[in-house]
Structures are given as C-alpha cells and as structure tokens.
C-alpha cells in the first residue's frame, strides 16, 4: 500500500501503463523536462525518453491531430491538454476526426487515444483555466468521457482508459490534484471503468456528482446527516456512456435526486440525468430532479468563483428544497 495524492496517483498510473505497453506515448505542452504544469508527468521523460514523452509545439489541434496519425500507425497516444479552456482549438480534431474514425471506417480503424484534461475551477486561476467542458464531449457519439474524483480511481482509471480501444476524454479534477492522499493497493485490481458507484449509502435522497463535486457532495451528505437527513452519494465516474442502473436503483429507493456539477446547468449533464431519471423512475419520484451547478454565465474572475461554484450551502439548500417538496 502506498499513500498518494491524486496527482501522484496519475503519475504512477501513467508510468505503469507505459511499462505495460511500449506503444503508449505521452504528448503535450511542457510535459517533458518540466513534468507538466501540474507535474502529472514528472520524471517520465527522464525514464522513458523523449520519443515516448513528447514535448509538443504549442498547438492543441496539432497535438490531437498528430496523435490521430500515431494511433493510425499503431501507437496509443495519451494527450495532455494543459488546461480545460485550451481544448477548444483541438475541438474539430476531437469531434470530427477522433470521435468518428472508427465509425466512418466501418470499424476497420481503431482510435485508441486518451485526451487528459484538467477540469473545473476553485484554484483562483485567470480566465480559460477553470472550465467544465464535459457536456460538449459527452454529447459527441464516438467519444467516451470519464472523470476521476479520488487518488485510487485516478491510478486505475487512467490505466484502464489507456488500455481501452475507443478514444477516451479523461477529466481530472485539478483542484483535487494535490489535496488529500489515499492508500493505493497497486497489487489490487480495479472495478470496471465504465461504471458509476455508490460512494456513501443513504435513504432519503440520491445525490449525483463526478470529479471535483464528489467531495462537495460527500461533505454535504455529512452535514445533512447531522440534521438527520440521509443522503446517498453516487460518483458517476463515467459520463459517456452513463451507467444509470445504480442511479435508478437508488432513486427508486429514495424518491429524490439532486445533481451537482460545476458545469453550467443549462444543457449540462444534469439535464440528461434529470430526463433519464424522470423517464425511468417517474412513479418513484417524490420531487422533481434538482440541479446545482455553475450559473449560465461565463466562468467569472477568480475572486468571484466562490459565488459561481456549487458549494456546501447551495447543495444543502437543494437537499432542503427536494425534501420539502
């Protein structure tokens, strides 16, 4: 057992994936000598060489587009997008090329690629450094989208994503990179990648979260417990495809659901979750599915981000509104 932060766990997971498969190649800006701006690839270029940990020119479309070519040549590129807001220059390559290659080739061509994106806010950054673009990718057929929320998942999920034959958008909650440590049993074996998981059992209300808001949800559940309210927290983990079976099972028991994400509420993942829960659990619902998320504004300046991000109080307010329905 080793105790690691989420950042260190990703580093260890990447290292192990590179040891397991010599076709795994890391690409990105400043990921070599610097080890990435968040140090996720720290030391990897030193140990695996410049051919496998590739410092790229500063052009995101170029990074993803050349990664497509490498994948066509039989490599497994793992691309680091430096910040969420910098993924948009690569949007065309991701949506028009990466996502569609397998489909339009009639299944002849595989596109095994992982695009790692540090996402979400809460780090006091300047603009374009705190975005939550997951819905844009989850809306795109051909892509798989996952988000880790703790070091153990980070360690295993990155390896599973790299080994997976379809392209995976891998979202990393950047504000949790260097926060809490967790024990990781590197000799253990992980559960399935594309599965959601009940992180805290409860009976009165189901709370759905992923990435950085899992921590918020767990804190809220703890606070609610102090007031005698039992909140079940589900970490979705996979955003495309969604793994809804545990969600339906939970909501049919609790009759109430609250979705928490940092992304804008309008047409965010919460909208899809609410629609599906309504379709599948209609007769079990005691209240409409409520959503707590970023407001439908651009991400605000850093000193205002605490107002924008769903925090403990806004989540508890949603719990109260749901229970009072």
């Amino acid at each position: 057992m080793t105790k690691m932060t989420l950042a260190k766990a990703l580093n260890a997971g990447l290292r192990r994936a590179m040891e397991d498969d010599d076709k795994v190649v890391l690409m990105g800006e400043d990921i070599g000598r610097l080890g990435g701006v968040f140090r996720i690839t720290d030391g990897l270029q030193k140990d695996f060489g410049e051919a496998r940990v590739v410092d790229t020119p500063l052009a995101e479309s170029g990074i993803v587009g050349t990664a497509v070519g490498l994948a066509l040549r039989g490599y497994r590129p793992v691309v680091e997008i430096q910040f969420d807001g910098f993924v948009y220059p690569a949007y065309d390559q991701i949506v028009s090329q990466v996502a569609k290659f397998h489909y339009r080739s009639g299944g002849r061509v595989a596109m095994p690629m992982v695009i790692r994106i540090p996402f979400g806010g809460g780090i006091g950054a300047v603009e374009h450094h705190s975005e939550s673009p997951e819905a844009q990718f989850a809306h795109t057929p051909g892509l798989k989208v996952v988000a880790c929320s703790d070091p153990v998942d980070a360690y295993w999920m990155i390896q599973q994503a790299i080994a997976h034959p379809d392209p995976v958008i891998f979202l990393e909650p950047k504000r949790l990179y260097h926060s809490t440590k967790a024990e990781i049993d590197v000799d253990g074996s992980p559960g399935p990648l594309f599965a959601s998981r009940v992180t805290r059992p409860g009976t009165d209300l189901t709370m759905l979260a992923y990435g950085p808001t899992v921590k918020t949800a767990l804190t809220a559940a703890e606070a609610a417990a102090g007031e005698g309210k039992s909140v079940e927290v589900i970490d979705l983990r996979t955003l495309s495809p969604l793994d809804m079976a545990p969600v339906y099972e939970s909501v049919r028991r609790t009759g109430r659901a609250v979705v928490v994400h940092e992304a804008h509420v309008n047409l965010g993942l919460g909208a899809e979750l609410a629609a599906r829960i309504t379709e599948q659990c209609f007769h079990s619902l005691e209240a409409p599915v409520l959503r707590v998320g970023g407001f439908d504004t651009p991400y605000p300046p850093a000193r205002a981000e605490e107002y924008f991000l769903p925090d403990l109080d806004r989540v508890l307010d949603a719990v109260d509104r749901s229970l009072a329905w």
């Binding site: 993803v64 587009g65 050349t66 990664a67 497509v68 490498l70 066509l72 590129p77 390559q93 339009r104």
Partner: peptide, 29 residues
Amino acid sequence: PAEHNFGLYTIVIGAQTLHATGYAMGVQM
C-alpha cells in the same frame, strides 16, 4: 486504409495533414 496504405477521404479541409504528420512521427518511432 491499412490494406492500401491509403487513408480515408477527409472532408474537413486540411485535417488530414496533421494525421499524415503524426503517422510520419510514428514511422520515425
């Protein structure tokens, strides 16, 4: 594409030039 060493037609103008460059990087590797 692998049978003919000839990629699929690409409609989005210029996108394939990056694929070619990446593929060439792979050849080098």
